[in-house]
């Protein structure tokens, strides 16, 4: 397996307003992604981003690096650690490494901790 290219690191800001917009756009109204009191009542430290929000950011990263939409044939990850979004917002950092078979290994972190496990995309040729 040869490493074809290391991609540039990109930082994405997440605010609670983004999560509200995403809840509406995706049809996932779970209040732990919007309401601090509900999040705390189920033992979370604060509002957390939808796992799917973070995976969507990983897909956005691939689109931006590739420079055109619709090239992702496969994308997936394990939601290993929640992305906590305090009132002032947070940042997620994404970096990828493309193998010559079209697979892109993605590292997604928040506050230096990995938040997605085995995050991988496959590009169509």
């Amino acid at each position: 397996m040869t490493v074809a290219a290391g991609w540039q690191e990109r930082t994405y800001r997440i605010t609670r307003a983004d999560l509200v917009a995403y809840a509406e756009a995706s049809g996932d109204p779970n209040p732990i992604h919007q309401d601090e009191a509900v999040a705390r009542s189920v033992g979370l430290p604060d509002v957390i981003a939808h796992g799917m929000y973070t995976l969507a950011l990983a897909a956005r990263y691939v689109d931006e690096e590739v420079g055109e939409p619709g090239r992702i044939k496969q994308i997936g990850a394990k939601f290993t650690r929640p992305v906590v979004v305090p009132a002032e917002g947070t940042e997620v950092v994404v970096v990828g490494e493309q193998r010559d078979d079209g697979t892109v290994l993605l590292t997604v972190t928040c506050g230096g901790e990995k938040v997605l496990g085995a995050a991988t995309a496959v590009l169509r040729g």
Partner: peptide, 22 residues
Amino acid sequence: AFAAATGTPYAPGDPAPATFPI
């Protein structure tokens, strides 16, 4: 709306973001 919520570049006529089928 889905693309805007995640800051994903999108222009009319483009394919949907890869996680849109969720």
